[in-house]
């Protein structure tokens, strides 16, 4: 799975730390999600969707390996 969280974050001018605080996780977790090292839970994905005001499908995409 790949994601465009970094782009969405840039659109809202949020740092990793800002976004982490908004959804109640650590900055390292945001970093790992952005680097595709960690796939977040549905709850976290929906929290991100709320922050970006977009459906989850817009910033999380399945890849061929999935």
């Amino acid at each position: 799975m790949k994601n465009t969280i970094k782009v969405e974050r840039a659109i809202l001018s949020l740092t990793q730390d800002d976004l982490a605080k908004k959804i109640g996780v650590s900055r390292q977790t945001i970093n790992s999600i952005e680097a595709n090292r960690y796939v977040p839970s549905t709850v976290l994905a929906l929290k991100l969707s709320e922050v970006f005001n977009k459906p989850v499908n817009d910033f999380f995409k399945l890849t061929v390996e999935d």
Binding site: S26, T29, Y38
Partner: peptide, 9 residues
């Protein structure tokens, strides 16, 4: 100190 779903995993 910073417990979240990733640290739990």
């Amino acid at each position: 100190k910073e417990e979240d779903e990733m640290t739990i995993a």
